[in-house]
Write a protein that binds this DNA or RNA. Sequence first.
DNA 1: CGTCCATTTGACCTAATTCAATACAGGTGG
DNA 2: CCACCTGTATTGAATTAGGTCAAATGGACG
Lengths: 240, 240
Amino acid sequence: MPDTVQNPHPCANCAFYTQSVWEPVGESAIAALAQQFKRRDLPKGQTLWDQGGENSGVTCVSKGLIALRSLRPDGRSTLLRLAYPGEIIGIRSFLTGRAHQTEATALLPSRVCVVARNRATRVVRENPSVLSRLAIRCIDEIDRNHERIIATASLPNKARLASLLQRLMDAHGAQVGDTYQMRLPLSRSDLADLIGVQSETLSRLMGRLAKDGRFSITGREVVMPIHRTPRQAGASKSAQ
Amino acid sequence: MPDTVQNPHPCANCAFYTQSVWEPVGESAIAALAQQFKRRDLPKGQTLWDQGGENSGVTCVSKGLIALRSLRPDGRSTLLRLAYPGEIIGIRSFLTGRAHQTEATALLPSRVCVVARNRATRVVRENPSVLSRLAIRCIDEIDRNHERIIATASLPNKARLASLLQRLMDAHGAQVGDTYQMRLPLSRSDLADLIGVQSETLSRLMGRLAKDGRFSITGREVVMPIHRTPRQAGASKSAQ
DNA sequence: CGTCCATTTGACCTAATTCAATACAGGTGG
DNA sequence: CCACCTGTATTGAATTAGGTCAAATGGACG
């Protein structure tokens, strides 16, 4: 139960306070933490850092949606992760001191909270339980990656796209009558990057899913009927 | 410079001592560490733990080769990682207390060193720098996964297989005359799992690579000519 | 109302999957 | 030593999915 007045912790007002990596910081360090704690608002499309850039601290997404993508030498890119509020990004470059391996951009108007690197390093050193929480965040990332690797190897692209859209709907959708609706936070080519196909293929997959009655889409507006039967990847046949 | 006589650290004789996650343990804790430190030899094919099993501690590969695979409900599996000497396995279930997400089996006669969970937990709590090294190992895993995700999205299967064989040759091969040779530590279906294709497809890809003159293979014996030109994925055309 | 960019469509081609059949290797017992 | 068996690996043929390049469409915005 964070309390603005009583609790001077910089994350105290955050909805994710109890899960914050900084939550375990003792009273003595709170002031030090707060001192180098910066909130930053990002308009949609803004780049937070570039691939190859230097880490500037521990960054926590507070609002919006951040895309982490790896740009390849051939000019194409792979969208590696969508980071939602409460999640930490740039943790690898912080813990290793390396350059950023990915580029971070805001897909929606977003806010991030950054604890500057030097200060974060010190706080982490003095609070092992913070390090322990950071390690758990790393493990979350490993879990996400394993899931993705397994899905890539075992599910057809169409099924992976269906489950991606479902997840996006869970995160961004709202119930309207007997449908769920959302404004897609990603472009078609971002979606393609995310499931690892060409954008033309993505377009055809979307067409096939729509024909199956899974949803309808115009531009970025998606409408999905609420099924009583649980979504099942690629199972439905078109009625013809 | 590990010294058996002077240094009572249980990892002191290990070739990977300086990189060991336990290396930073202070003298006071070394005895405690050594007490619950178990070496275990695994014949080829032996399972070290099953998917869903309980974590029994921090496990370090000391010799041989361990495969970590995820078994899917449909009976098929994905080979997620090959763990070589010096690497830590089962780190996620140790840090989170969850069940193992993967099955670990020895692909070669192997040895692992296990620090029992309770003891490891205590030592980690008392030595933040151990936790810090564990976190780096997690990051290594994230790096490996990202590389794999990017490779899957950007390289054709043939090129990925070629680079896999190259890596295996680097790890297991020996120079014989003007060739490198190795005995493949993996079955064909493991190779297929690893690059995410069917075993029939793998067989055909192997055939195509062999026809390109990249290597010749009989059973598990691989012979690869030493090229002066650096290996380049999928670039060579058969001479016809 | 046109311009520019994102998206879709079409046609063609290559690669991968599937299922079925065959070959091969490593052991076992006669 | 050979015949046999079993699991592993390869091959073939037919089908489907995905990639590529080029062209057409559509939408957002000045």
